[in-house]
């Protein structure tokens, strides 16, 4: 049986998060006025997003992705390359390249398991030479986002379920697999593999990692 390394993305391999990606799209609306209004609304909402994320990742998703309502799919895809070049690539932690490299040398399949959007993750995954990735996907109707996510929504326990199914399908032994995340919401994802690692952890995950004697890594 083979093995894989599963990575969360935001905060784990890159400094940015979902809000940065959305802020980039907000800043690049058609028309200055629209850009200003959308950017301001995003900035004002940041404390609310933080509070919601602290409380529950699902609540955060419900509040956050609704902001995409009305965005054109073409436009989002158009902006993705630019988003990668200007925002995401400079935000990759220096240690991330090396971690992935060492992991690949071990013969592990490299898999991203992230709550970020597929549109934004593609170029980044290619750049990091990731073998496979699963992301959240916006629902589009007639080419425009509805503000809802298509199931399965990648967050918390869903990530762990997806990893189990993926491992079965790809004949991977989860006991030999590695998982990396920065957030307490990814505890299920870390718990299903034999080699969990907390990366740049928040205070809650740090405490949990110490309690479970998991390695704690700082890639920043």
């Amino acid at each position: 049986m083979g093995a894989a390394a599963f990575y969360d993305l935001d905060g784990t391999l890159v400094r940015t998060n979902l809000v940065h990606a959305f802020a980039f799209s907000a800043r690049n609306q058609q028309g200055i006025l629209k850009s200003i209004v959308k950017t301001a609304a995003t900035l004002v909402s940041v404390p609310m997003f933080m509070a919601a994320d602290f409380y529950n990742r699902r609540l955060f998703n419900d509040l956050f992705f609704v902001r995409y309502r009305g965005e054109s799919e073409d436009r989002l895809r158009c902006l993705a390359e630019e988003l990668f070049d200007t925002v995401l690539r400079p935000s990759i932690f220096p240690g991330a390249y090396e971690l992935i490299d060492k992991s690949r040398q071990l013969g592990l399949r490299q898999v991203l398991v992230t709550g970020a959007l597929d549109i934004t993750v593609g170029p980044l995954a290619k750049h990091l030479k990731i073998d496979d990735y699963v992301t959240n996907r916006l629902e589009f109707v007639d080419g425009y986002a509805t503000g809802r996510l298509l199931p399965p929504v990648m967050a918390a326990a869903t990530k762990a379920s997806w990893m189990r199914i993926y491992a079965e399908k790809e004949n991977l032994n989860l006991s030999d697999c590695y998982a990396y995340s920065d957030s307490m919401s990814d505890l299920p994802m870390l718990s299903v593999v034999g080699h969990p690692t907390a990366v740049n952890p928040d205070i809650r995950l740090r405490g949990t990692a110490q309690q479970h004697d998991w390695p704690i890594l700082d890639l920043r």
Binding site: A5, G95, L99, K102, L106, T197, L217, D218, L219
Partner: peptide, 11 residues
């Protein structure tokens, strides 16, 4: 060769 341990040693 555990990547986590290598990174923790190096960084």
């Amino acid at each position: 060769k555990n990547p986590s341990y290598i990174e923790m040693y190096r960084r």
